[in-house]
Amino acid sequence: MIDIIINLALLSFLAISAIAIVRMKNLFAIIMLFGIFSFLSASVFMVMDAVDVAFTEAAVGAGISTVLMIATLALTKVQDEKRPGGHKPWLPLTVVIVTAAALVYGTLDIPAFGDANAPSQKHVAPQYLQRSIPETGIPNVVTSVLASYRGFDTLGEVFVVFTAGIAVLILIGGVAQPSKRKTSRKKKNA
């Protein structure tokens, strides 16, 4: 009963902050609301007993993403500019409503939350739960799955983070400076 009330409160706050983000024009306030949205999602994961996911969402979504977006804001303007002309909202609205209806229809077939007989609980999850302690000696099955049973996936994730760092360095890091020098030289010649 208490779970339902907490979930209801958290989900309605999520909806409110999402609507506020869409309607706002001040980018700084939008970034702050993004942080609040991430923190609320982390709380929802927490209520669902997914502590590892909640931890990651709170640290990455609410923490680092907010700081990085504010750092991006330093490179752009704080206020969202009005686009000239404007666009007709009806086609995107229809697409969104149809997609949402299809998604809601799809949820009707999803097994109940925490159902032990759900297909996703029947596949490899029992193997992990039974074998984690005798094979790895690690009580937190999330860690043993992440680092050992699915070690290749995690290696891929680390490469993704690494590649993202390299991409940022190439796009706006030290590599951009020589070209800037070239343009200033061109200006001098002209």
């Binding site: 990651t56 990455v60 860690t143």
Partner: peptide, 12 residues
């Protein structure tokens, strides 16, 4: 290994 967490969260 024992509680929630790991390399990703710790690094952040």
């Amino acid at each position: 290994d024992f509680g929630p967490g790991g390399g990703f969260q710790a690094g952040v």
